[in-house]
Simulated scan of single mutants.
Amino acid sequence: MKLQFLGPLYAHPGPVASVCLDTSRDLDDPERALDLRWRKLRRSLLAHDADEATVGALEAAVGSDREVAGRHGQAIFAAHGSLVLAEGLPEPPDRDTARFGMLPDALALALQHGPDIPYATVAIRRVHLAEAAGGEEELQLDFETGRWPMSRVAPGARVRHRIPVEGWPKEAEQLLAELVAAVSAEAVELVVLAGDPWSVNSLLRSAPKKLLGNFVKLKDGHYRRPEPGRALMEEELGLLFEGRLSDHDRHQLDAYLGQHARHPEYVDGLDAAVAAFQRGQARALILNLPVRISRHLWVGTAPTQLALSGEDLNAFGLNYYWEEPAPGAALIRAAAGTQAELIAVPEDELPLEDGVAVLLRYTVPE
């Protein structure tokens, strides 16, 4: 998973205020619950020397996702009195957090972006028109693209067409052309089809062979209509994508396993990850879920300036550096700042030393 979306967080020097909180709307009084949560975080930030202007910038963004129904959260960052980044979270955090420090605490946001699978959904309903309109039938087609799971709270543009049944063959031809373009241009991995059996089956019969491997047809054809601000077929997509990596990340993980088989000392563990980021040599940061990194890191102002001790940075000639109590924040900054990617895998699927590994950009020397 690429980390360009974190770019704004590192465009300006710290300190940065980072907030991650539950903004769910599936409560009897969501506004009161959100107000209580924010007050607690606000007090914590001020107690840790955050300035009023920066806290005020955060406060203006808290709850700005009110149009999104159901369970979800927000990750919000501000610095020097200005909002830096605010994004919805598909899942509310396990606990609300607020931190004021030199580095943004972006690990939770980055993890919720994964596995970042590009997909498209096509839902077709048969609509019976009123007698006044001739009592004929139409097909209502909804087409949406997205990246899972962030599309759950930030769905892509949804296009709706109303088509007379007799006009379906021509419309299906146009839709297939759009799908072929999306698969090619956006690397769409799955095209999920649901709804009217006749329309869906005719679409599949007309699909080009190169696209057939990307199609998934829901068995019963039924899907829940989305709530406001939520993705089309969200529940069904959750079942399809559960425990799945994107094709791109799977290929990266296979490459890591090849490097690990030859030279584990270069790629496995926190020591190897730090050494790789110091040289700008990491192509991807690999983390175990749940993330448990017990050792602190020492960092400077640049992404490559991180080490396992202050003495190491001092030996590099740095005069300004600090002990970073959130190692995940340091590793994510190093990855984003060196154009490395992020792959998160369950610990029981692939246990890593220290819960951390890297895929190197270059071949490990024999």
Rank of each mutant, 00 (worst) to 15 (best):
Q4N: 14
F5I: 10
L9A: 11
P15R: 11
V16R: 05
V16C: 07
V19W: 14
D26C: 07
L27R: 15
P30R: 03
L36Q: 15
R39I: 07
L41D: 09
H48I: 07
E52N: 11
A53G: 05
G56P: 03
L58V: 02
L58I: 12
E59F: 04
A61K: 12
A61E: 15
G63V: 06
E67G: 12
A69L: 04
G101R: 09
L103Y: 07
L107A: 10
H113N: 07
D116A: 15
V122F: 06
A123F: 07
A130H: 00
A130M: 02
A132S: 11
G134T: 02
G135I: 00
E136I: 05
E137T: 06
Q140A: 13
D142N: 04
D142W: 08
F143N: 02
G146R: 11
M150F: 10
S151P: 06
A154G: 01
G156T: 02
R158T: 11
H161F: 10
H161D: 08
R162V: 05
V165C: 03
G167F: 00
Q174K: 14
A177D: 11
L179R: 08
A181L: 04
V188E: 04
P197N: 12
V200Q: 02
V200H: 01
N201H: 09
N201C: 01
L203W: 08
L203T: 13
L204G: 00
S206V: 01
K210N: 12
L218Q: 10
L237H: 02
R244Q: 13
S246Y: 08
S246Q: 08
H248R: 14
D249Q: 12
H251A: 15
Q252T: 09
L253Y: 08
L253C: 13
P264M: 05
P264V: 06
D268T: 06
A272T: 00
Q278T: 00
L289G: 04
L289C: 01
S294K: 13
H296G: 13
T301R: 15
S309E: 04
N314A: 14
A315R: 11
L318S: 00
Y321C: 03
W322Y: 03
W322G: 00
E324S: 05
A336D: 08
A336G: 08
L342E: 11
L342K: 11
A357L: 03
L360E: 15
Y362V: 07
